[in-house]
């Protein structure tokens, strides 16, 4: 809301009442009552409804950030929704945490298998070291960007590389016992 302001319309979904109240308060505070719709309910079903009725398209951006991409609520999983959005050419940003190292790049591969013609990128951050558990993200995390408009710029990939380098230098200096390594994947075109 602070970044795009009045230039954008927003739909924020959450099942947590306190989060919804906080979003409503932020909407008021920022003077975005006419731009922001807050949904107290299942964001997967809400977004699926929007894509099925063609109320979102290539000029939209959907951020999917569930705890579990495979959990199904009302018959649709977050993975199902991401595949559906990518197939409809709706730009998607999907964030995941790595519950196991074996799941590395899994979401990216699932999307590319379902929609082979998609343009997509994945940036994963693996967390290593004797105190890695203190970071609170399991084995790490990653983000899938799908849609031609989301091709990461050199400035963005450079910023990510710089953060990884800076983190490892800071961590070593402070003896945090945590290090990180990035891993990238891209669709083959």
């Amino acid at each position: 809301m602070m970044m795009l302001g009045q230039t954008c319309r927003y739909v924020f979904c959450d099942t947590d009442r306190a989060s919804v109240d906080d979003l409503l308060a932020a909407r008021e505070r920022l003077g975005l009552q006419d731009q922001v719709r807050v949904v107290h309910g299942d964001g997967l079903a809400e977004t699926l409804g929007l894509v099925e009725t063609r109320q979102i398209g290539q000029a939209s951006l959907v951020h999917v950030d569930p705890f579990d991409f495979h959990a199904q609520d009302r018959g649709v999983s977050a993975l199902d929704l991401v595949k559906r959005l990518v197939a409809a050419a709706v730009p998607v940003v999907a964030w995941y945490h790595l519950a196991t190292l074996a799941a590395s790049l899994e979401l990216f591969h699932d999307v590319m298998t379902a929609v082979p013609e998609a343009l997509a990128w994945c940036a994963e951050l693996q967390v290593l070291g004797p105190r890695a558990n203190l970071a609170g993200v399991g084995w790490g995390c990653g983000i899938v960007l799908a849609g031609a408009a989301l091709a990461p710029s050199p400035a963005l990939t450079g910023a990510a590389d710089a953060y990884v380098t800076a983190f490892n230098e800071l961590s070593a200096g402070a003896d945090l016992g945590v290090s990180v390594a990035s891993r990238f994947a891209t669709s083959a075109r």
């Binding site: 809301m1 970044m3 795009l4 230039t7 954008c8 319309r9 927003y10 739909v11 924020f12 979904c13 959450d14 947590d16 306190a18 989060s19 906080d22 979003l23 308060a25 932020a26 807050v38 964001g43 997967l44 809400e46 977004t47 929007l50 979102i56 000029a59 939209s60 951006l61 959907v62 951020h63 999917v64 950030d65 569930p66 705890f67 977050a78 929704l81 730009p91 940003v93 964030w95 940036a123 983000i143 960007l145 408009a149 989301l150 990461p152 710029s153 400035a155 963005l156 910023a159 990510a160 953060y163």
Partner: peptide, 24 residues
């Protein structure tokens, strides 16, 4: 880091979050 980069590039006319959480 990636989300703000993507938003800055795309400047969408509509933005949707499925699991928004709190604003602050």
């Amino acid at each position: 880091l990636w989300l703000t980069g993507a938003l800055g590039q795309v400047r969408p006319v509509q933005y949707i979050e499925t699991h928004a959480g709190s604003a602050l």
